[in-house]
Design a protein around this nucleic acid. Structure first.
Lengths: 270, 270
DNA sequence: GAAATCGTTGCACTGGGTGCAACTAGTTTT
DNA sequence: AAAACTAGTTGCACCCAGTGCAACGATTTC
């Protein structure tokens, strides 16, 4: 058999597929929870296998079963474990900062981290306006996230080029912006402490992001704000300065020594 | 232990033991993360077994490895799974708690969440008495909801003041109570685990509410009960204690580590 | 009440996990 | 610098746990 270098055991893979399915369908509006047969069919596995796997997962508290509908959903144990991840601490420290930021500029604010070749949003604070999609827990490819510019900002140019080329499957490269723009954006982050992404992610929305550093000065996360397209260039960069300043304060709250070489002043500039 | 009737598969049990160990020692001790041999010894298992299990877990993102120290800690996948479902799970898990509460005190009980600058009621359990308005799916402004006191209870005073001022359009401020009362109510929540709102929302009705925390300890929702105005102050606070205790138990059911700093005892007091 | 759906269980088979030991790699000791 | 020690990975033979099929009980549907 051809070995996957990062191979996972069959049992674990099956369990993870089940958990992922339960998580994915958690946002469903209809009835909540999934039945054994539905999961089995969706996964292309034996009913019996899924039934037994779920019972095991239940006995460990990873899933729980509704006593009446007999449907499964994710369990308390998973949430308890999640609370102990490194992301969890980050979120708790960052929450007040993002709330304040969202209140001031009244736009959706997100906290994103880099995981592998995806950008994971770990905290979303919606603006006061209407309903916006919650991105928490959702991972999107590096090249499609506005926050990537900040997350990758202190990578070598070569490494950045490498990940961009690897992750741009042909045709997409044109519409998603070229390397030069990425490198320029990263440079802007290094100089000014934030960057704006003029690539359209959604209609009429700009991305403003800034890097958050941990105690060692390494980029640990990024604050990303979706800004409704504005004509006023100056106002956009004023927002950028605000995002950058918030990221700087959050970095210090996370243990970045104030005044260190990484704790540079945030300046507003094109 | 002799024999668990609802037995878990061998592989899963081993994986869970590992994850639990990582969770227990990941919470900021000396150095972050655990090594293979240490885990193996602690679990009384073969090194090789632990080594392979951890590699599988890593490939699924359940754990992640520090590239330099080669130590493992809990991974982003746990966080991502939990974040995506905590919302929808809330209602399912909360339902029995609210039903029980409504049965004991025989008043309308509601579960409310904060969305943007509105308070959304996601679950309503009516009392046995006659007709009461159903609030499910209804969003009302923060300043007009009794549950807000609990939902905002661990915000900074500054942030709370900010949202109050921003959302009080002039003339309304007078009749809806002043900032001091809000801050006092929030403080009461932090100290006693619940609060009562003596501002009249409807005729002769008081609002009793308590914060529900998610696995991270953040306020995720609030239980809010409309109590027919009672003369007896002591009875009101006894109800408050009951609401607070229900919210506490619900929090734990949602994954809040029992005994954590957020899991404070609920006390009845003015 | 027949039929369909959903979930669980019994059982023979086999493939993946297990434990031992050898191995590499890094660090400290002599 | 060789030896000794620690940390982690890998090869391999054995064998038990997981697999798939099918039958079964429990509900729901028509």
């Amino acid at each position: 058999m051809i070995e996957n270098p990062s191979a996972s055991s069959v049992g674990l893979r099956r369990d993870m597929e089940i958990l992922e399915l339960l998580a994915g369908h958690g946002g469903g509006r209809d009835v909540d929870g999934l039945g054994v047969s539905w999961i089995a069919q969706r996964l292309g596995r034996e009913k019996s296998q899924v039934s037994r796997a779920l019972r095991s997962l239940e006995s460990e508290g990873m899933v729980e079963r509704d006593p009446v509908t007999r449907r499964y959903r994710l369990g308390w144990r998973l949430f308890a474990l999640a609370a102990r991840t490194s992301q969890s601490r980050l979120v708790q420290v960052a929450a007040p900062f993002l709330r304040r930021l969202a209140m001031i500029i009244d736009e959706d604010s997100h906290l994103c981290v880099l995981r592998g070749d995806s950008v994971l949003t770990v905290l979303s604070v919606p603006s006061s306006r209407a309903y916006h999609r919650i991105w928490e827990g959702v991972a999107i490819p590096v090249i499609m996230a506005a926050a990537s510019r900040s997350l990758l900002s202190d990578w070598d140019d070569d490494q950045m080029r490498a990940i961009l080329r690897a992750k741009l499957p042909g045709g997409l490269s044109a519409e998603l912006g070229d390397e030069k723009q990425w490198l320029a954006d990263a440079a802007h982050v290094r100089e000014h402490g934030y960057t704006t992404t003029d690539v359209e992610l959604e209609d009429g929305v700009l991305g403003v992001s800034a890097p958050v550093r941990d105690h060692r000065g390494m980029v640990a996360a990024a604050i990303s704000v979706s800004v409704a397209r504005v004509r006023d260039e100056a106002r956009l960069h004023e927002m950028g300065r605000l995002v950058g300043e918030t990221a700087r304060q959050l970095s210090i709250a996370l243990g970045l020594p104030p005044g260190s070489s990484f704790d540079y002043p945030v300046t507003s500039g094109p």
